[in-house]
């Protein structure tokens, strides 16, 4: 659970870096983004790594659900008065933030990833020629430029992801036994900064298209 989580944490940083090329951060940003998308879609090492990444997602999701079910069973009959112990808010509801992210992930796959793979057709109104993978930049632009609801769903999902990460980043280190009076405050601070960077960084793309 923790190892798969840390693996996904690294992946998110790679994903975010690529995403930022959607924005006009340099002169030929769209060409760079398309080139990366093409490289990601064709390079055999990346394609192999994609399988490892999917395994990472599946292990994290399935193991998380199994643990949650075990934990509900472990309580048995619940309390009449819900627990009032002071803990960090999100840590109590981590499974729900995880499930929300899972729903978003499924949506995200159908919106973009499966279109890129050629499993799902791009929206007809977008007039994207085949193969879609070569016109991935146009698909992204079309998605965020034509539907405000999509952009809002994406931004909400990124905020939930940020909250999820704020707890789970330090949690992963604790699970692996890495808790030290000297380093844990630093790990917690890095986790908070990381989750803010992820939430804001990913949200910038839909926000850019909302305001342009």
């Amino acid at each position: 659970m923790a190892l798969a989580g840390l693996f996904l944490i690294v992946f998110l940083l790679v994903h975010l870096t690529i995403n930022l090329f959607i924005l006009p951060i340099c002169e030929n940003h769209d060409e760079i983004f398309s080139a990366i998308a093409h490289f990601m879609g064709t390079n055999s090492i990346v394609k192999t790594f994609e399988i490892v990444l999917m395994a990472g997602f599946l292990i994290h999701i399935i193991y998380g659900i199994i643990l949650q079910i075990q934990n509900w069973i472990a309580r048995g009959k619940g309390y009449k008065i819900a627990n009032k112990t002071k803990t960090s808010f999100m840590s109590k509801y981590i499974i729900y933030s995880g499930l929300l992210i899972l729903f978003f992930l499924i949506l995200h796959f159908f919106d973009l990833y499966f279109i890129k793979l050629g499993l799902v057709e791009a929206p007809a109104a977008a007039n994207i020629p085949h193969p879609h993978e070569e016109h991935f930049y146009d698909i992204v632009v079309y998605l965020f430029s034509n539907n405000l609801l999509y952009s809002i769903i994406y931004i909400i999902a990124f905020i939930v992801l940020g909250i999820h990460l704020n707890h789970t980043f330090q949690s992963a280190f604790q699970t692996l036994g890495l808790n030290h009076s000297k380093y844990t405050p630093f790990i917690k601070a890095v986790g908070t900064i990381y989750s803010i960077v992820i939430a804001i960084g990913f949200s910038i793309v839909p926000l850019y298209f909302i305001f342009n």
């Binding site: 075990q70 627990n83 112990t85 803990t87 960090s88 840590s91 981590i94 330090q170 604790q174």
Partner: peptide, 22 residues
């Protein structure tokens, strides 16, 4: 049949003897 730790740290907050999650 005890559950798994998901690092909520409610245990540490409620322990009458201040046992730490370290």
């Amino acid at each position: 049949g005890f559950g798994n730790c998901t690092n909520t740290y409610a245990c540490e907050a409620e322990c009458p003897k201040g046992i730490k999650v370290t």
